[in-house]
């Protein structure tokens, strides 16, 4: 459920990048303060581990389909939330670059959904509330399962909110939510059980594992600050996005069209004067009566334009190739 660049608006993408960027800075500072330098290779190898582990599948009971682990909660339990967050961030960045899995602008969203929410919400508020020092294995198992399930639900909610705020997909909020949450509940339960089984396995095999996760308790008020910051930046960016580019577009299209076309025939001018608004190839259909749109002339203009664009790009590439091959 990686968010893609294609689904987000600049304001959502940039504000999420800004917010997660702040958390990255804070986490790296924390890690430097709290841990010795063995943490650097540890996080690196564990990141590669999660990457590799995600490529091994297991069969989901009863369905026959296959799943894999997400890793956020597992890492948080193993090495503490700050290190886990930074490791997940790195994994997502690599996936975005190497596999184009989730985009570069969408990285902030993905880090938030798959890193921040499990490491800084689900882990401290759920897992840590169930599992205390010296808790029994059953308790650890339960804690890991519930934290994973909840982490994934929150992540799915994040995806829905980011998509809806971006207004690229026109899926309405409620329908999208109803679509996403149950699917991810099912996935989450399986993933939770698997994560919990791995945690118990490791605890049995390496009882001193807790040494890795030694971390001061996450300061909970920090997250209130982050969430306020997130809302604030998101608000700022959307205001910026809604006021500026639209206005710019409107004024430029008006000016240029009038200048270039004013000498033309009256008739053409009247249709051209609302060029961008009314007659563009794919106009703002929301505000229009569909009958009026059946103006064949405009769609033809659009089609011709696109074809010419294609031909131009093809020609340029041919020329480039010729030039390059000498």
């Amino acid at each position: 459920m990686h968010m893609a660049d294609a689904l987000i608006s600049p304001s959502v993408g940039c504000s999420m990048l800004a917010v997660t960027g702040a958390v990255i800075l804070y986490s790296s500072k924390k890690i430097k303060e709290e841990f010795d330098d063995s943490r650097i290779p540890l996080m690196g190898v564990l990141g590669a581990f999660v990457f590799a582990a995600q490529m091994i599948n297991f069969t989901i009971p009863l369905t026959g389909s296959s799943g894999h682990i997400g890793g956020g909660i597992l890492l948080a339990i193993l090495i503490g939330p700050y290190s886990a967050f930074l490791t997940i961030t790195s994994i997502l960045t690599i996936q975005a670059l190497l596999f184009a899995d989730g985009g570069i602008l969408a990285l902030g969203c993905n880090i938030f959904n798959l890193g921040f929410l499990p490491c800084f919400v689900s882990y401290p508020f759920v897992y840590k509330n169930i599992v205390k020092e010296g808790s029994s294995k059953t308790k650890i198992f339960t804690g890991a399962t519930i934290a994973s399930v909840l982490g994934l639900q929150l992540g799915a909610l994040g995806v829905v909110l980011e998509t809806v705020f971006s207004e690229i997909s026109i899926l309405p909020f409620d329908k999208f939510l109803i679509l996403m949450l149950p699917i991810h509940l099912a996935i989450g339960i399986v993933e939770g059980l698997v994560t919990a089984t791995i945690v118990t396995f490791i605890l049995n095999a390496k009882p001193d594992i807790n040494a890795y996760s030694y971390a001061p308790s996450v300061k909970k008020n920090i997250f209130a600050i982050f969430i306020v910051a997130a809302l604030f930046t998101a608000g700022f960016f959307s205001w910026f996005a809604s006021s500026l580019p639209d206005g710019l577009e409107w004024s430029i299209s008006n000016v240029t069209v009038k200048e270039e076309i004013s000498s033309k025939e009256e008739k053409i001018y009247s249709s051209l004067s609302n060029l961008q608004e009314k007659t563009s190839f794919f106009p703002d259909y929301n505000f229009k009566n569909d009958k009026e749109q059946g103006n064949i002339g405009t769609s033809v203009a659009g089609l011709i334009g696109v074809s010419i664009t294609f031909i131009t790009i093809a020609l340029i590439s041919l020329i480039l190739k010729k030039l390059k091959d000498g």
């Binding site: 540890l42 190898v45 564990l46 590669a48 581990f49 590799a52 582990a53 091994i56 599948n57 297991f58 069969t59 009971p61 296959s66 682990i69 193993l78 399986v190 059980l193 698997v194 089984t197 791995i198 396995f201 490791i202 095999a205 390496k206 594992i209 890795y212």
Partner: peptide, 18 residues
């Protein structure tokens, strides 16, 4: 191919990684 084998497989991979 189920969860149990998967978990111990991943667990071993994790131990090696550590």
């Amino acid at each position: 191919m189920g969860i149990k084998v998967y978990a111990s497989l991943i667990g071993h991979l994790l131990l090696r990684a550590l």
